[in-house]
Design a protein around this nucleic acid. Structure first.
Length: 350
DNA sequence: AAACCGGGGCC
DNA sequence: GGCCCAGGTTT
């Protein structure tokens, strides 16, 4: 066994995390936690994980639930495409795998929302399968410990890291070893201020030896971000707002959102003809910017007061009470806009 | 403000 | 099979 693996396993037993609620060999719980942890840190995940497990204690209950219920429980975690994949994955497991998670990571990786690294983590924790993970934590630990230069997002570097990860796998205790890498990356070999003084790899770490800890792993080359803008209508009546489901692909795919006005449309005319509503008053609201990784969206909201919450029988269009925004799976900037509107402070400039 | 992140989807 | 994207948090 590699010294690297031995060192990490010993460190894990002494200094690793042992009381995380998903540390079981139940594949369902491991899977659920891994999907949540793909996008969110441990402290945030814990309450969501508990609520989720209480409502969906096992695979059959999750598979049988309407996807809306899953999205509602996911509300606030963001990345809703992954909640939809989670649900789809549960259904696929029920119909094609007899409700059992396969132990083979290659089979797991064919399921929606599960890639190579997540598949390895599930099979290692649930079944003790000997398979290497390569998530952000592991990439950082390996790049530093072995002094690997180059952005890990490129194919050649990523391939090298996968080879390295495979070669370092211990013959036994793969579950402890896998958790060790996650814990070391999360608690010692962190992105910002790594605690090299208490790192078990300090005496072999190439980056530490060469004073290159801050430079590794090599950062992503930066790209210019594009600008986009959109007009959004907050159609209001009787303490409710009209929400409309977005098309399944593209920005905010499948989420409920405010209707997006065509660029040159007259607001009152468009709302009246599209939804058959009696428009009383249109008020432009303060525009604001939301920064995505790849572009900046300028939201230009308008409030549209209408006569009554009627005329919207179409599927994908509904009235949602303004005092129950918490329960809706909304894109973050739309939620922010509506919460400001409820607090009535949107009329002042930011 | 910029970096980060594992998988999906498009070409 | 390679490249680019999403969306919220951390730094």
């Amino acid at each position: 066994m590699s010294t690297f693996a031995k060192t990490l396993i010993a460190w894990q037993r002494e200094h690793g995390r042992h009381d995380l609620p998903w540390q079981t060999n139940d594949a369902y719980r491991v899977w659920l936690s891994e999907i949540m942890l793909q996008q969110t840190q441990v402290d945030t995940v814990i309450p969501y994980y508990a609520r989720f497990l209480a409502r969906f204690p096992d695979l059959p209950s999750l598979a049988a639930a309407p996807v809306e219920d899953v999205l509602t429980l996911w509300s606030g975690l963001g990345y809703y495409a992954r909640a939809r994949n989670l649900h789809k994955c549960a259904q696929t497991l029920m119909t094609r795998h007899g409700g059992v998670f396969p132990a083979d990571p290659a089979l797991l990786a064919e399921l929606p929302g599960i890639g190579r690294s997540t598949a390895a983590a599930i099979s290692a924790f649930a079944y003790g399968t000997r398979a290497a993970i390569l998530d952000g934590n592991v990439k950082r630990v390996l790049a530093r410990a072995f002094g690997i230069e180059g952005f890990p997002g490129t194919k050649p570097i990523e391939n090298r890291l996968w080879e390295l990860a495979d070669s370092l796998l211990p013959a036994t205790n793969v579950d402890v070893y896998t958790q060790a890498q996650m814990d070391l990356g999360a608690t010692v070999c962190t992105r910002g201020r790594p605690a090299c003084a208490r790192c078990p790899l300090a005496d072999v770490c190439v980056a530490l030896r060469d004073g290159r800890v801050a430079e590794l792993p090599t950062r992503r080359p930066k790209k210019e971000t594009r600008e986009r803008s959109g007009r959004f209508a907050a159609i209001l009546a009787d303490g409710a707002v009209l929400l409309e489901r977005r098309p399944p692909s593209g920005i905010w795919g499948g989420l409920l959102s405010l209707p997006e006005l065509p660029e040159d449309a007259d607001t009152a005319d468009w709302v009246a003809s599209r939804y058959g509503l009696d428009v009383h008053k249109v008020t432009p609201l303060a525009s604001f910017r939301h920064v995505f990784t790849h572009f900046t969206l300028t939201l230009e909201p308008e409030s549209v007061e209408v006569g009554a919450t009627t005329g919207c029988a179409e599927p994908g269009i509904l009235w949602h009470r303004l005092d129950q925004l918490d329960a809706a799976a909304l894109p973050a900037p739309i939620r922010k806009l509506l919460e400001q509107l409820v607090r009535r402070d949107l009329f002042s400039e930011p």
